[in-house]
């Protein structure tokens, strides 16, 4: 779905903004400021039952749980984040 117009590519390292960029507020607090890797591009999701209009491009970003929560372990955490929340690293 219009993958070429995504700002970030699969495999790219990105950081989640700490400050609310406006628009979609649905990015969990615990992931803000954390760094992960883009694993999937979703384009713009059509979801009229949950919200009017459309949010920016959506990405699945994979994080290391050990880094996010500062604990041992090799588990991964995947979150879906809209493009306005992501910054290049």
């Amino acid at each position: 779905m219009e993958a070429t117009t995504h700002r970030f590519k699969v495999g790219e390292t990105v950081r989640v903004r700490e400050e609310h960029p406006g628009g979609n507020p649905r990015t969990p607090w615990y992931i803000r400021g954390k760094t992960g890797v883009v694993v999937k591009l979703h384009g713009v999701i059509d979801n009229p039952i949950d919200h009017r209009g459309h949010y920016p491009f959506l990405y699945t970003v994979m994080f290391e749980i050990g880094q996010v929560f500062d604990r041992p372990g090799n588990e991964k955490l995947c979150l879906d984040v809209h493009e306005e929340w992501l910054m290049p690293v």
């Binding site: 979703h42 991964k76 955490l77 879906d80």
Partner: peptide, 12 residues
């Protein structure tokens, strides 16, 4: 075995 947690949003 790797464990992957998916934290969902309304869109996915």
């Amino acid at each position: 075995r790797e464990v992957r947690v998916y934290d969902s949003t309304s869109d996915m």
